Amino acid sequence: MFNEFGKFIKLTTFGESHGLALGGIIDGFPAGLSVNFDEIQKDLDRRKPGQSRIVTQRKEEDKVEFISGIFDGKTTGQSIGFIIKNTNQKSKDYDHNTGVFRPSHADFTYFQKYGIRDYRGGGRTSARETVNWVVAGALAKQLISSIRFHAFVSSIGEITLQKNINELDLNLTESNIVRCPDPKTAEQMIQKIAEIKKDGDTIGGIITCIIKNVPVGLGEPIFDKLSARLAQGMMSINAAKGFEIGSGFAGTQLKGSEHNDIFIQGGKTLTNNSGGVQGGISNGMDIVFKVAFKPVATIMKEQQTIDEKGNVSTIKGKGRHDPCVLPRAVPIVEAIAAFVLADFWLMNKARKI
């Protein structure tokens, strides 16, 4: 159950950070889609480690191998199986914490729950798991190709993108290594991450996602709202600490007369404080949401902790780690959003004669 995501189409994943491979099975994916493998690899390349000086220097090619469900370049309607082999593990980098718990990691909770843990990069708790999500999301993007997903870094620490989203050229997101569509702000963010890395520390931030060309009617009433499923998916990402859609928390400072999205001819609205979702169902406006990410828990500074017997100890990070997850999390946010919308899109198709 806890390795599955989705309802009409379902992704089940497996694998550990320092195991032989990661992978997944996608059930319920329709037959007949011509798969663009280059586009899938492109999204994987956007997520992979070692792509710039401000991310972890672990060198993984992250080449996906499809082992079922695709024949002659088209989906068959059967289970789509895939694997991504690990090729650059350095498990010895974790020998120092075999018996102690890393602060703010899942080490302690997993050990208390299961009585055993994989200390090599956290095993199943590692963000390396998200490589599976990117494969599934890239396929979902091709299924609902008319819907466009644009995620970008909108803040790093106290550095915040000040421009309104309507002023941004989203085509510039991939023009810099931090994936911020404003070059001036991007340079400040890159400098900040470099400084934090040099000091042996880490930093968090916010990713904003805009989804365009969304049809009206995606999402189910009550307990399976579109906004709720997006929140579930985003809050499943490692280091995610907050989710807001539309006006979010800032909307609490407005009066109803200021917050209401007034309808105009054609069913559009003058404003989009709802973030494209009303009553849990898409209303045809752009879906706009934000995801907050904490600083990476592994830092290159000595910290107090406890060992597996409860005794006070110390620990200091070693090896290759991200000083900031934001640049590599952008394609992950898009992938989960695409998978959620594709799931609801198929539900709607199944209802209609």
Score class of each variant (00 low, 15 high):
His96Asp: 15
Tyr114Ile: 08
Arg120Ile: 09
Arg124Tyr: 14
Arg148Val: 04
Ser175Ile: 07
Ser155Asp: 04
Gln142Ala: 08
Lys141Glu: 00
Ser104Gln: 15
Arg148Ala: 02
Glu174Lys: 10
Gln112Leu: 14
Ile156Phe: 02
Gly122Pro: 05
Arg124Cys: 13
Asn132Cys: 14
Ala138Tyr: 05
Gly137Thr: 03
Leu170Arg: 10
Tyr110Ala: 12
Phe111Ile: 05
Ile147Arg: 00
Lys141Asp: 00
Ser146His: 14
Phe108Cys: 05
Tyr110Gly: 03
His105Leu: 13
Glu174Asn: 12
Thr125Trp: 05
Glu174Gln: 12
Phe152Leu: 06
Ile116Phe: 11
Val131Ala: 15
Trp133Pro: 00
Arg120Gly: 09
Asp169Met: 02
Leu139Gly: 01
Ser104Ile: 14
Tyr110Thr: 13
Thr125Arg: 08
Gly115His: 11
Phe108Pro: 00
Ser145Asp: 01
Ser154Ile: 10
Ser104Glu: 14
Thr130Met: 11
Thr98Arg: 15
Ala151Arg: 00
Gly157Ala: 01
Gln112Gly: 06
Gly121Ser: 10
Asn164Trp: 02
Tyr110Cys: 07
Ile144Arg: 00
Thr98Asp: 05
Gly123Arg: 02
Ile165Ala: 05
Ile165Met: 09
Val153Glu: 00
Leu168Ser: 07
Asp169Leu: 04
Trp133His: 06
Asn176Lys: 08
Ser155Trp: 03
Asn97Val: 13
Ser104Asp: 13
Lys113Pro: 14
Gln162Cys: 12
Arg148Thr: 05
Thr160Val: 15
Thr109Tyr: 12
Lys141Leu: 04
Ile144Leu: 04
Thr98Ala: 09
Tyr119Phe: 15
Glu158Lys: 07
Ser155Leu: 05
Val178Thr: 06
Gly115Met: 11
Ala138Lys: 05
Glu167Asp: 13
Asn176Gln: 11
Thr109Lys: 14
Ile144Gly: 01
His150Leu: 09
Phe108Met: 14
Gly121Gln: 03
Asn132Thr: 14
Phe149Lys: 00
Asn132Asp: 09
Arg117Tyr: 00
Val178Ala: 04
His105Trp: 12
Thr160Lys: 15
Leu139Tyr: 03
Tyr119Lys: 14
Val131Phe: 04
Asn164Arg: 09
